[in-house]
Each structure stands twice: as structure tokens, then as C-alpha cells.
């Protein structure tokens, strides 16, 4: 059997198309929710230095917890499957997004804020028209970090019956089937790289636009 046939074999027997759809569905839901929540958290705490410090310290500790440990500890609460996978992804992803949003909003040049005030922008207008747009590159950077986390957690979801591409990886290991492992493993890796580079390109674009060297 030649290589193409073996790949096609694995692809069909393991239903990789369907697995990929499951995988990306969990990924997208988790990342979108984490982005919305993360940005909202960042916006809420950007004027509250104390709250922000405490919150980020707590989230920092949460961030050190091994992914798999958090995933399985949520089982008694959320059962098996997609739910704990998505929730775990979100928990890990909120920190980088919220922290970068916070940093982005608070590190806008004081002079810009002063001018905005002097022109007669209200606080909420300054947030929407000045702080937020200027923080966008950093926020995008945070989402990109979250994207990598989410990809990792969603893949682990296969171990707790969430489906996705982690499932065939587990099957491959249990059956000691090298073809399944290699095809699925490389496909997951490729997918992760593609998504990361797209995010990288978007981040870079935003940065360049801010520098004005378009």
C-alpha cells in the first residue's frame, strides 16, 4: 500500500473530517467566549489597579495548574465530553487576553489621553475611540496566546470523550497503530501551526498599522 492510500485509510476509518469539525467547533466556541470574557474583564479592571493585581495573581496561579488536572477535576461538576473541555480552555485563555487588554488599555501614552480630554471626549469615548484602538495589537497578541492554549486543551478533550482530534490520537496509542498516530498527530500539528500563523499575521498587521509604516 502506498503512503497516500494509508493516509486515506486512516482518514476514513477514523472519520478525521468529522473529528476536525468537532475539534474546530470546540476551539471556536472556547476562543470566542474567552475573547469576549477576557476583553470585558480587562475593560472592567483597567481603572481598578488593586482589583487587577489581585485578579491577575489569582489567575496566574490558576495558569500553573496542569491542564489535564483541571480537566479531570471538572468532571464531577460537568460530566464527560465537550463541556469541561470548553470550560477548561476558557479558564486558561481568559488570563492572557484579560492581562493584555489591561496592559494595552493602561499603557496608552498619557499625552494622548490628555489631548482626548482636552478635546472634550468623555471617559467612555476615550475608552472606545482612543484606548481600545491603541490597545488592539496587544489584545490580538493575548488572543494569539490563548489560541495556542485552546488548541492544546481541545486536543486533550479526546481523553474525556469530547471527540475532536484527540480521540483518534488516543485510539492510535491504545491500539499501538503507528499510521493513526502519525497521520492524526501531523494533522493536528499542521492545523495548530496554520491557525497560529494566521493569528500572527493579523497581530503583525495591527502592529504595523499602529506604527504607521504601512
Amino acid at each position: 500500500m502506498n503512503i497516500i492510500d494509508r493516509i486515506m485509510d486512516v482518514w476514513e476509518l477514523q472519520q478525521l473530517t468529522q473529528r476536525t469539525v468537532e475539534h474546530l467547533t470546540m476551539f471556536a466556541i472556547a476562543l470566542v467566549v474567552a475573547s469576549i470574557v477576557g476583553i470585558i474583564v480587562g475593560v472592567i479592571v483597567y481603572r481598578r489597579f488593586r482589583v487587577a493585581t489581585v485578579l491577575f495573581n489569582v489567575l496566574n496561579i490558576a495558569e500553573t495548574i496542569p491542564t489535564l488536572a483541571l480537566l479531570v477535576l471538572l468532571l464531577p461538576l460537568l460530566g464527560l465530553g465537550m463541556k469541561p473541555t470548553i470550560v477548561t480552555s476558557i479558564i486558561y485563555s481568559i488570563l492572557p487576553i484579560a492581562r493584555n487588554t489591561y496592559t494595552g488599555l493602561t499603557s496608552v501614552d498619557k499625552e494622548h489621553i490628555l489631548v482626548a480630554e482636552a478635546l472634550g471626549l468623555s471617559d467612555s469615548e476615550i475608552l472606545r475611540k482612543v484606548r481600545f484602538p491603541l490597545a488592539l495589537p496587544l489584545i490580538a497578541g493575548g488572543i494569539r496566546i490563548a489560541l495556542v492554549f485552546t488548541m492544546g486543551v481541545v486536543t486533550l478533550g479526546g481523553l474525556i470523550a469530547a471527540g475532536g482530534l484527540g480521540a483518534p490520537l488516543q485510539t492510535g496509542i491504545q491500539l499501538y497503530d503507528k499510521d493513526i498516530i502519525i497521520v492524526t498527530g501531523l494533522w493536528v500539528g499542521l492545523l495548530a501551526l496554520i491557525l497560529d500563523s494566521v493569528a500572527g499575521m493579523i497581530e503583525h498587521r495591527l502592529e504595523v498599522n499602529r506604527d504607521g509604516t504601512r
Binding site: 481523553l159 499501538y176 495548530a192
Partner: peptide
């Protein structure tokens, strides 16, 4: 760094065994 850990752990099997 962008590649999921699970994929890395899995790929080791066909190369080095368990």
C-alpha cells in the same frame, strides 16, 4: 510551541515506542 502537547506525546510513540 504552537503544537499541542498531546500531539507531541503521541508522535513519540511510533518513533521511540512507549
Amino acid at each position: 510551541q504552537a503544537i499541542p502537547s498531546f500531539a507531541v506525546v503521541a508522535i513519540v510513540v511510533p518513533l521511540l515506542g512507549i
